[in-house]
Design a protein around this nucleic acid. Structure first.
Length: 586
RNA sequence: CGGGGCGUAGCGCAGCCUGGUAGCGCAUCUGCUUUGGGAGCAGAGGGCCGGGGGUUCGAAUCCCUCCGCCCCGACCA
């Protein structure tokens, strides 16, 4: 039996000032974790028990569709070369050398290793599909670890990889994961949503994230309460209301206007007495194009034009032009591409590149500017703007694309839906992703199809952040005194608090009750410490155990108290009914 | 990597400006009392004041430098 008096549970009355978000504070205060370095944590017994419960659920469900592997965290450079990610991962990968000077890394993920196994071992379409998974520590040298266990440099991830003979097979593997993920997160007691996500520079086709709404989250998701549409704002779209204000002036050709000091959108709008929606915003970037076939990477000028009241969405922009990386232009580059200063940049007079990221300036125009006329735009000249600028007539572009970030209150993009989008913060707990042929093709994995022809298997990749399930659960359920976890992932399901262990009757009643609960298969912790009742109650409220039995004075009447941590108050319960009642609850 | 902040006992902090024997609360240990919401009294232990260098008779305090940590941003298959 687990006794609090023997457990190592170093609770803190006060949280270290470093902790900002609720889950971080409580994980420290409840003695679940201790920090070793930036983004590196020790997991203490209570934390480890909770994580093991989560891992247990994940493993049980994943075994329904796949097979578990255990792969090295220490990977030789050669394993990461064929996919191009030895260099592609850049500074995010931890790298080291062995005594002979050979280069190694700590694995951030295992696409290469799994694909290498597939390449060597899979021969025939008859062996497909395969779903291979692992629950292991992964390493990422995050530029900025933060928020306790939310963004760290070493963490536990369930990763799985599917290999299918064709796209239909991949669809099935993807659907299997979608269904299993929903089961896992439901069993972990999380309120989650599945959202469309950007498939990123990895070149996948479909991507879905599982998110938990919380202020501590780093992602923004847009959702429609009416039809259920939900997407990461990196990907989300919306319908725009027509801009109804009068065209600024006339219908003539662009007219140069002196606008002293009007560098910000708000200045320009005020100067011309227009809404920012009728001004054209310009954001200037340098975009990195990865060199193919061993060619060197190259940087190209990139101008994004959109409505003054819109924000550029760099993920979408990057996707639209196929850039590996974006950074904003410096003054010298602005002069080179625009011949004008920041604050007065505009599209008139530019010579757009014929194709994205070729020589010259790539000009991308947001869809929100389509069909507009008589707008205001910078003149690429200090203290001057043009008015009466009409896209298409007065300037051209390399391409038109959706490159803006949606805002709360805009119309839902779903056909015939009249809902308005709401935008909220969320933390990503899982991601399922159709990878395609990137790795199998780069690494030369093939199998023979029924016609004896070599074909390249198609892959999917699917992750779950184990620690993030714990942190999301805490973010979801806490108050001033502590938190409570769902019984399925709590380190213990119930704590039996003996209010006074110097009272023989109470102590023996508690012992027997805890033994009975354990015999009934309930995960019980007996608080047998020689502490005052108040101390034990405070600790019990803090550490995340969902139910508590107070063994106190009422034992004389054959009664104890049942406390449901999620609710206020306590309920008297006959001693004889405790086991049955708790079995029903957990 | 840019901006900001912090590093003094296990935790939370004061002291630094204006240099002169390192303090407070909580926690810990001992004893007595107490025992249903972080008890009371009495006593005790615990510090390379983040590291290195410099100024000074003398540095937690002033100067230089390095390191670590937190927050905002950038970044985040």
């Amino acid at each position: 039996m687990h006794r609090w008096s023997k457990l190592f549970v170093p609770t803190l009355r006060e949280a270290p000032t470093d902790a900002e978000v609720a889950s971080h504070k409580f994980l420290l205060r409840a003695g679940y974790i201790r920090q070793l370095g930036a983004g590196i944590y020790n997991y203490l017994p209570l934390g480890q028990r909770a994580l093991n419960k989560i891992i247990g659920i994940v493993r049980e469900e994943m075994d329904q569709i796949g097979q578990e592997f255990f792969l090295p965290a220490l990977n030789p450079r050669e394993a990461w070369e064929p996919s191009g990610r030895w260099s592609g991962m850049g500074d995010n990968m931890f790298r080291l050398k062995d005594r002979k000077g050979a280069e190694l890394c700590l694995a951030m993920t295992h696409e290469e290793i799994m694909t290498e196994i597939a390449r060597k071992e899979l021969r025939s379409y008859k062996q497909l599909p395969q779903i291979w998974y692992q629950i292991q520590t992964k390493f990422r040298d995050e530029p900025r670890p933060k928020s306790g266990l939310l963004r760290v440099r070493q963490f536990t991830m369930k990763d799985s990889y599917s290999f299918d003979i064709d796209a239909d097979g991949l669809d099935r593997s993807f659907e299997l994961h979608d269904a299993v993920y929903r089961k896992i997160f439901t069993r972990c007691g999380l309120k989650f949503v599945a959202v469309d996500a950007d498939s990123g520079a990895m070149g996948g086709s479909q991507s879905q994230e599982f998110m938990v709404h919380t202020e501590a989250g780093e992602d923004l998701i847009a959702s429609c309460p009416t039809c259920g549409y939900a997407a990461n704002t990196e990907k989300a779209t919306s319908l725009l209301d027509a801009v109804t204000e009068m065209a600024p002036t006339g219908d003539g050709l662009p007219e140069l206007v002196l606008t002293p000091g009007c560098a910000a959108i708000s200045d320009v709008a005020a100067f011309f007495k227009i809404s920012p929606a009728s001004d054209i915003k310009c954001v200037a970037y340098m975009a990195l194009k990865r060199g193919e076939n061993g060619k060197a990477d190259t940087w190209h000028g990139l101008a994004a034009f959109l409505r003054g009241d819109h924000q550029v969405n760099e993920t979408k922009l990057q996707g639209a032009v196929g850039a590996a990386e974006l950074r904003t232009m410096n003054g010298e580059e602005l002069e080179q591409f625009f011949h004008g200063p920041a604050g007065f940049l505009g599209p008139v007079g530019l010579a757009p590149a014929a194709k994205a990221l070729t020589s010259g300036l790539t000009v991308v125009v947001d869809k929100g500017l389509e069909g507009r006329s008589n707008l205001v735009a910078g003149a690429n000249k200090l203290d001057y703007h043009f008015r009466s600028v009409t896209p298409g007539r007065d300037f051209s572009w390399t391409l038109v694309a959706d490159i803006r970030t949606v805002n709360e209150g805009e119309a839902c993009p779903t056909a015939n839906c009249t809902g308005k989008l709401v935008v909220g913060k969320a933390v990503e707990i899982g991601h399922i992703f159709k990878l395609g042929y990137k790795y199998t093709s780069a690494m030369g994995a093939t199998v023979l199809d029924p016609n004896g022809k070599e074909v390249t298997p198609i892959m999917g990749s699917y992750g779950i952040g184990i620690e993030r399930i714990l942190t999301a659960a805490i973010e979801q359920s806490h108050d001033a005194n502590g938190f409570w976890l769902p019984a399925s992932i709590a380190p213990f399901q119930v704590v039996v608090t003996v209010t006074n262990v110097t009272d023989t009757l109470l102590r023996e009643t508690g012992e027997k009750l805890a033994a009975d609960l354990e015999a009934a298969g309930i995960d019980v912790l007996l608080d047998d410490r020689d502490e005052r009742a108040g101390v034990k109650f405070k600790d019990a409220d803090l550490v995340g155990i969902p139910y508590r039995i107070n063994v106190g004075k009422k034992v004389a009447e054959g009664k104890v108290e049942l406390v449901n941590r999620a609710m206020p108050g306590a309920e008297d319960l006959a001693l004889a009914d405790v086991v049955q009642r708790l079995k029903a609850l957990v």
